[in-house]
Nucleic acid binder design. Sequence first.
DNA 1: GTGAGTGCAAAGTGTTTGCACGAGG
DNA 2: CCTCGTGCAAACACTTTGCACTCAC
Lengths: 150, 150
Amino acid sequence: MTINQEFRDVLREEGMRHTWQRQAVWDEIKSNDEHRDADDIFICLKQAGYPISRATVYRTIDVLVSHGLVRKLDIGEGRMRLEHKLDSHHHDHLICENCGRIIEFISPEIEALQSKISSAHGFALTHHVHQLFGRCLSYPDCDYYRSQNR
Amino acid sequence: MTINQEFRDVLREEGMRHTWQRQAVWDEIKSNDEHRDADDIFICLKQAGYPISRATVYRTIDVLVSHGLVRKLDIGEGRMRLEHKLDSHHHDHLICENCGRIIEFISPEIEALQSKISSAHGFALTHHVHQLFGRCLSYPDCDYYRSQNR
DNA sequence: GTGAGTGCAAAGTGTTTGCACGAGG
DNA sequence: CCTCGTGCAAACACTTTGCACTCAC
């Protein structure tokens, strides 16, 4: 997997150029595990003093996605959340509609059932989207938790 | 359930007015089981000769959704597909990336696992999005089927 | 040197909104 | 009548794109 390879080398292998812009976007996305969107990344880089443009951020994200370094997460907000794919296995998401917290979950049972359903319908499964929406009941910093416990 | 109630009555109960525009949008959505989008509905009505506007179609869809008569389906295309909720129980979707076919599936086992996962994470589940993307292997009118069988 | 990459601003896409007019109850 | 609903066009939010310039290799 390209994950542990130098970013510079990953690009070179595909005959793509290494630019500070691409490095900066990749570094920024890698730097934390929140599910930020393209504009968050753009703003962080701007604030850090990089003279980068929004277009480049979007284009770079597409490069990262097509190289399997980053995953786009569509939770129905009309914009894409981003997730780096370092050290992570496949997972799906629980999303708190109240505080926006996103929790990852893994369920081999569900994965197995998905395969079963797909083949039962004559489908060759390529990927899936599975998101559980609800409200935190156990996180003190979620407003909903607060409203339930006041 | 309001499903079998006259549409006129459904609206009246909420103190909303019955207009031919609302009736026409609802009739059009009810008229078939494809998962069309707002613009498809708008175009159908226009072609049928109704002098309706796109804004009204969008506004009416929101009314129908909030009354539980229609469900919006976001399959990551950047627009909403619509589904009337007549005579249907909850289901999720299998989507062919090749021909666009959408097949509904129901899995009580997955539903149960979702509840289990939610409570294990201290979440009160409100709804979920579960879509399986792949390719038809069994539908002769899907290009992918054709390409595999030529 | 030369073409891939960038920045800018403009275009795109699906959807929403402000406002004046029209019609349902 | 008196609102709620509608039509229109403009506004929106996010993302993509055309084009001239630039810089990585």
